[in-house]
């Protein structure tokens, strides 16, 4: 919307707040409502918002396809990696008690990384799906 000045300015103001808020939801998820899924969806929503207002190409420039696809795979790998870390440190798979000296802290750390993995995967998948749907009809046919 090149001529839609209001929307562009508002979006420019809002998007950093949305991303910040997504991070808040992610890291405050232990203490209030929130967590990996929500944060992932909100991050994806922010970038989709950007893409809606400034155009898909701009969003693709900000968030290239390669990065998104890497995110999709990396999230699952982070999650599985947490499980493997527990395995290597002498526990069972996905056993967080061994991740730190104090079992409760180990749990906390494990939950944290698992949530990060979930958020990365979810936002990557949502963004990728959006890109696929939005770019499908745009190629010259």
């Amino acid at each position: 919307m090149r001529h839609n000045l209001v929307l562009r300015v508002v979006a420019k103001l809002l998007i950093p707040f949305i991303l910040l808020f997504a991070l808040y939801v992610q890291f405050h998820g232990d203490f209030g409502p929130g967590g990996g899924f929500q944060a992932g969806v909100i991050i994806a929503a922010a970038i989709i918002f950007y893409g809606l207002i400034y155009g898909l190409d701009a969003a693709r420039k900000a968030m290239p396809d390669r990065v998104v696809e890497t995110m999709v795979a990396c999230g699952v790998l982070i999650y599985a990696g947490v499980g493997l870390a527990g395995l290597f440190l002498g526990g069972n798979y996905l056993d967080y008690f061994v991740l730190d000296h104090d079992p409760a802290h180990g749990q906390h750390r494990g939950i944290f990384w698992v949530e990060v993995g979930v958020a990365v995967t979810v936002s990557g998948v949502m963004l990728k799906i959006f890109y696929m749907f939005a770019s499908r009809g745009r190629d010259p046919e």
Partner: peptide
């Protein structure tokens, strides 16, 4: 802030 920022923008876009 959010409401006062976004809802006029949305209404503006809607009207346009």
């Amino acid at each position: 802030l959010f409401i006062f920022l976004t809802s006029p923008a949305a209404t503006h876009a809607l009207a346009k």
